[in-house]
Design a protein around this nucleic acid. Sequence first.
DNA 1: CTGTTAGCGCCTTCAT
DNA 2: ATGAAGGCGCTAACAG
Lengths: 383, 383
Amino acid sequence: MRSCIEKLIQSIEKALPILYLRKVFRMGDMRNTESNKQVTIKDIAKKAGVSQATVGRVIGGYGSVSSKAKEKVLKVVKELNYVPNSIAQSMKNKRTKTIGVVVGKLGNPFFSEIVNAIEATGAKLGYTVVISNTDEDPKKELECLRTLYSKQIDGIIIATTLRPDTVLDAASKKFYSGSIPTVYIDRELPFLQELCVLTDNYFGAYKATEYLIEMGHRNIGIIAGTNTSTMHRRIEGYKRALMEHNIEPQEKFIRFGEKATVEEGRQFTSELLNNNPDLTALFALNNQLVTGMLKTINEMKLSIPSDLSIVGWDDFELAQIVNPPLTMVTQDTEKIGTVATEKLIEIINSKDDESNALGERRIVFNAHLIIRESCADRQVELI
Amino acid sequence: MRSCIEKLIQSIEKALPILYLRKVFRMGDMRNTESNKQVTIKDIAKKAGVSQATVGRVIGGYGSVSSKAKEKVLKVVKELNYVPNSIAQSMKNKRTKTIGVVVGKLGNPFFSEIVNAIEATGAKLGYTVVISNTDEDPKKELECLRTLYSKQIDGIIIATTLRPDTVLDAASKKFYSGSIPTVYIDRELPFLQELCVLTDNYFGAYKATEYLIEMGHRNIGIIAGTNTSTMHRRIEGYKRALMEHNIEPQEKFIRFGEKATVEEGRQFTSELLNNNPDLTALFALNNQLVTGMLKTINEMKLSIPSDLSIVGWDDFELAQIVNPPLTMVTQDTEKIGTVATEKLIEIINSKDDESNALGERRIVFNAHLIIRESCADRQVELI
DNA sequence: CTGTTAGCGCCTTCAT
DNA sequence: ATGAAGGCGCTAACAG
């Protein structure tokens, strides 16, 4: 009788996929019947009839264990779906195999590409990645560091929001002076001696500016943001290129934002353009600012490059398909992320070996000027 | 004599900023002199002359402590720069205040925007975020889950790469059936009963397709990728719109990739266009595919929308400034991330209370069709 | 109000 | 080859 009903149900199940739901409920029930608490080495030991130490040896792969014991243990491990508790391991080993990443905002493709590379490289080398955003706020940054520190991460990769002239109080110093292996990315600080992996911002800006000058532009507006070494170096490169071509840099052509957001890009573009009708070119110093700049230019119905020449920074996939394709300074985000991670893990390991740290202070990659179609020779002045 | 030299150094320091480096070295030295090992409650207790329990009470803010003892402890805490060891806390509490996030690839803006919102919401509620990429590979996904599980995370937010027809083996079930509070995002699975937060993909695709049909298009190519519920639902919406307007969906107009990359977008666009000269519109189902599609269209020197009408999916900031601005189906990534996180934390807490889980199975947000200028009425047929 | 103490799960030395 | 036991840093129940 019962088997008959089972059969009936089976055939109905076949016919009506919706009844598949029955299986769902079965699966759901499992959750309650399965003992909810974590399987530990102790459980394995009891069930396999050996000591905890033996189980530890099998799982950790050290010491010597009879093959019979080993077999028994492994069988039970599988049966009980045992997964070691990393927290307890960390407690013992004093390392968590975790690295912390602190950036301005993951929503910014520049950072998310870097973090992507960090995660990939970390995973390859056995490290997990914890992220936190600072929103470019030094207070938040300190909070992040405190949290990460309390979580006993093995190392940190950070694009710091601190400014080059920051003076740290005693409490903060702990987090910024090698109490944990640290690699800085993108932004350097003169008073810290940790490794920094970054792009040659100075020369990148220099090349782009020179390119514009050589096309005949003299009045070049520049839009920057975030009060960091990165932006300052770019501004310096820009000024240097101007001076080397006997053009006096003018402060009124320079706009410097707080957070380098799209909104700031919009605002600065319209301000610059409205206040300085003599500008023939604009240079925006990161992807968000470029986006904002383009929005405003679109709204003002200016056409690129006939009305205005444009150079951006941070290549994004779309720069090539925007119309016209944008001339851009590019940096290799993947490389920054990958190298920073590799170096950080080297430093972490060298600490274990009691050998000394790397000694490297800066790893600098080239910025590349990708010339597309957003710049034109300077137009004849309309008197 | 000595003060004289100090003075001299000071004046030189002022004159030559480079000598600021002297301070760097001082700071660096600190690292070695400072005891490197972690300050613990024990240290505080000893130095403050009280018991560990009292220190615990002060720091944890429970029980009652004399204000004198409290003061002493707080003073030492500050002096020694004590930061609690979360690992040890987690060991005791059985919770890590950490949530794991598993997505395809952080490099994809869709995911990085979601993760950004998750991090922000998590931080607000006291949770740290661990990320891992699956590269849309189910095997990697299982590895990620295993790692996260071993790290004792309190909950998971996952955009699973599993396919709707996946059958899980016994070992995997553990990770996919509520052994940890889980919220799925973007992709649902019929055989799991956890909460899923996602966009109404079906209706989004339906609306976009209908929009094209109403402009007179009958032959609409569609480019999808990743074998997930998400993409399937979009295809279904597309087909449904066609059928409701008495147009028979044609398989040759549908291309389905593996990873929904820019490269796949390029390839499928040129294949579709070359094999089907009768296509008058193209619909690409995520940001990467849109980008690839635009690249190819640009290379083929086709102009939008006069040669070809275009609808994309996943609004990105640049869609509005591309020329012409792109008509797009949009989903609210921030909302998905925020709500998923809030709900997850609710579930985590409801588990503590022994009260039951939420009972919600789906939270679905609208997809919005943003009409810009990349679609035109269907051209008169040649011949 | 305060101190003592027993674990959390794992690793590892020491003894057998 | 194996088992017993101590301890990582913190919490909290219990005893004073």
